[in-house]
Computed example of a mutant assay.
Amino acid sequence: MLTRRTLNRSLAAIIAAALLPGPSRAEDAPRARNVVLVHGLFADGSCWSEVIPRLQAAGLTVTSVQNPLTTFDEALASTQRVLARQDGPTVLVGHSFSGMIVTEAGADPKVTAVVYVAARAPDAGEDYAALAKTYPTPPASAGIVFDGDEGRLTEAAFLKDFAGDLPPERAKVLFAVQQPFRKGLLTARTTQAAWRSKPSFYAVSTEDRTINPDLQRFMAERMKARTIALAASHLALISQPQAIADLILEAAGQPRQHP
């Protein structure tokens, strides 16, 4: 049964989508030869290890950014340095928190399309935390612990709420390499929204316990993204890497590659 709150959200999404300027449809994506991947919280650049070889098999040059997860400015700068090294059209891809970075850095003229994988996708100047609070709090939030200014997920929350569809032994390896993040990252705001002017793509994880799936759907609809829905945890890039690779290849204007 639809509630007034659900109807209001749907209406807001429709109105916001109607007001979007510029192209953001998949058919507008020009051909790219480079892909830059950015990881989010509780991870490092190796989280893309299942996606990278699939993109390389298609002849793309791929770089996974080692996001420092310290301040937003430092995290943004790490991606911008990698973008500066690209030799032509580039697809910028972000998972989870790094959707903030994609939203900001995606304005770079080299970036031909932006891809969000279960990621934050704020508008320019938007308070993402306030937006997220309009949806039920995902279970992983309760598993964040802090040592002073540094936050991380407990092992129990990591295995159940972050990497819930991965074999436990695989999830434990990922837990062992999780990077701590600084509290200041959680209050950062972008100054621009690349998805308003760049072709946009979004992979929604329908079983996500880290970012509410309904929030993901709202953000994808608002940006008029080419959207896929995967029955996956927050780590679809590891549990369903072919689907993620296919979406990135589409954003790059490249044919799909299957093993």
Results as ranks from 00 to 15, higher is better:
residue 95 H to C: 09
residue 82 V to F: 05
residue 253 G to R: 07
residue 77 A to L: 02
residue 126 E to G: 10
residue 165 D to Y: 05
residue 74 E to F: 13
residue 42 F to I: 04
residue 230 L to M: 12
residue 61 T to H: 11
residue 79 T to K: 04
residue 105 A to H: 11
residue 171 A to I: 00
residue 86 Q to G: 00
residue 66 Q to S: 06
residue 82 V to K: 08
residue 22 G to L: 07
residue 58 A to G: 09
residue 207 E to W: 06
residue 219 M to V: 13
residue 249 L to Y: 14
residue 69 L to I: 11
residue 165 D to P: 01
residue 132 A to F: 10
residue 87 D to I: 02
residue 51 V to F: 01
residue 50 E to I: 10
residue 70 T to G: 06
residue 72 F to M: 08
residue 212 N to V: 10
residue 253 G to Y: 02
residue 176 A to V: 05
residue 240 Q to T: 09
residue 87 D to V: 13
residue 85 R to F: 00
residue 13 A to D: 12
residue 31 R to H: 11
residue 68 P to H: 06
residue 22 G to E: 09
residue 122 P to T: 08
residue 75 A to K: 04
residue 171 A to E: 02
residue 107 A to T: 15
residue 127 D to P: 15
residue 162 F to C: 04
residue 227 T to W: 12
residue 228 I to H: 04
residue 36 V to D: 03
residue 87 D to L: 05
residue 53 P to D: 07
residue 120 R to N: 09
residue 12 A to V: 03
residue 35 V to G: 02
residue 8 N to Q: 15
residue 163 A to F: 05
residue 160 K to Q: 12
residue 203 A to E: 10
residue 49 S to P: 12
residue 131 L to Q: 13
residue 156 A to V: 12
residue 244 I to K: 02
residue 128 Y to T: 15
residue 243 A to C: 14
residue 147 D to R: 08
residue 150 E to Q: 15
residue 14 I to W: 03
residue 139 P to L: 11
residue 197 S to C: 07
residue 89 P to I: 00
residue 239 S to K: 06
residue 196 R to E: 04
residue 221 E to A: 14
residue 47 C to P: 01
residue 77 A to F: 06
residue 100 M to H: 01
residue 108 D to P: 02
residue 180 P to N: 00
residue 191 T to Q: 03
residue 28 D to Q: 13
residue 185 L to T: 02
residue 226 R to G: 05
residue 80 Q to P: 02
residue 212 N to Y: 06
residue 78 S to M: 09
residue 232 A to Q: 00
residue 248 I to P: 03
residue 169 E to G: 01
residue 90 T to M: 01
residue 54 R to V: 03
residue 183 K to W: 07
residue 176 A to I: 08
residue 170 R to N: 03
residue 100 M to A: 06
residue 133 K to Y: 11
residue 112 T to C: 11
residue 126 E to A: 15
residue 98 S to E: 07
residue 133 K to E: 15
residue 246 D to Q: 10
residue 90 T to R: 04
residue 107 A to Q: 12
residue 77 A to Y: 02
residue 15 I to R: 14
residue 134 T to I: 08
residue 34 N to K: 04
residue 161 D to S: 11
residue 156 A to G: 07
residue 27 E to M: 09
residue 235 L to Y: 12
residue 60 L to Q: 01
residue 171 A to F: 01
residue 196 R to Y: 11
residue 7 L to G: 09
residue 59 G to E: 05
